[in-house]
Design a protein around this nucleic acid. Sequence first.
DNA 1: TGACATTTGTCCGCCAGCAGACGGTTTCCC
DNA 2: GGGAAACCGTCTGCTGGCGGACAAATGTCA
Lengths: 230, 230
Amino acid sequence: MPEKSKFWYLKHFNIFEGMPDEEMEKVGKISSMSTVKKRQIIFFPEQPSQSIFFLKEGHVKLSRVTEDGREIILDVIGPGELFGELSLLDENEQRTEIAEALDEAVICAIDKRDFEELLKRSPQLNLEITKRMGLRLRRFQERVSDLVFKDVKKRIASFLLRYAEEFGKMKKGIVTIHPFLSHQEIAFLTASARQTVTTTLNELKTAGVIDFSRKSLVINDLGKLHKIAR
Amino acid sequence: MPEKSKFWYLKHFNIFEGMPDEEMEKVGKISSMSTVKKRQIIFFPEQPSQSIFFLKEGHVKLSRVTEDGREIILDVIGPGELFGELSLLDENEQRTEIAEALDEAVICAIDKRDFEELLKRSPQLNLEITKRMGLRLRRFQERVSDLVFKDVKKRIASFLLRYAEEFGKMKKGIVTIHPFLSHQEIAFLTASARQTVTTTLNELKTAGVIDFSRKSLVINDLGKLHKIAR
DNA sequence: TGACATTTGTCCGCCAGCAGACGGTTTCCC
DNA sequence: GGGAAACCGTCTGCTGGCGGACAAATGTCA
């Protein structure tokens, strides 16, 4: 799957690659690093947005909460990705997203204005950001398309494939993932119900396609999973 | 609704605004304009992507078709917007979208490479593009969230509001739209069935919220529509 | 190590809304 | 202006999967 590896590559490509050293130094000066614990919220929607973040280690869940308290997960990201970029759009508006650490995470924050300055000075960086946003957009398109055309079983299979590709380790055609999402969270991501996720996963287990316990998730038969997801 | 007008403003803001004249002249040289008829396809997914487009007049539907021939509408855009930007991501890959004119449209095409050059030279333009992509991303997030949380009636109401805001003319609190989407197309956009759209629209008509014939669509009670959509 | 919180597993009743059918209306194009 | 094609309106049966309920397993923290 050549496309996928390219996607991966672009995503994990260091965003400051190819930047002259003196610029890099400036970046170092204007950014601040910190560690957040599992389940800690990184920014609240009420705060006026002023920083954008880079995730160095761990996993972060980006979500929204509706007025009546229901949650929707917009994305789950891993090391090397940036988030909060949408705040570039807002002037003094509030964020609409919540970011929550799914495990111990190391993040790096840069003030929005500083970052915007940086963008103006470095077309290369700017292009990189644009491409990343484009990739996100694509993923969302995919997601909408899945929601419209696929039933729950297919959506969950589809999710597992993405999950495996982004966060799993492949060895001889078998992918192992250290899971960091609950069934409830998978349900939010696939627009389904918790119970349905549990049932479907167990169905897949019985069919021998996957195997899982609380501490690991193994995909035995990628081919079959692809077939189910289509 | 302050947010909305800002959204509108950003979207319809001329993308080349503030560009020095000599640059502008270059843009003129490398771009080519053309007119397309209603229902004409602007680019096919099979073609390697090489141009990005600006829509000057008319409306364009951006969609995807699955292997088994089902269609999903990704977006519907009006004058002032650009499309095909995602091709910036692809090297020599095929487009995954289809663009189709919904009425007589005037478009302007620029070669991808040329445009990329332009971006490198103009941080201002680059930022503008980034912001637009961000807006699109937001809209998609909204759409996913709607799909997950709202029932068909709400989604259709929600669609009507966007439709009105983007393409309608407001006069004394009443919005009139010259419709260019069929019920089938609205169904694709709202992830529902044609019959359901017909029924729901008629329900809204009976309730006095909207009024429509084949040649015009009027929204009488924006407030009520908002309430239904929430 | 025990108690409380969180997550997973299973069963089932219920209904939103999809999809098929078919007839009426408008639009398009020769 | 007439025939075909596209679009709209309405009725109806059927079902995917949501959501409530409750039990079991696992995690967590004192």
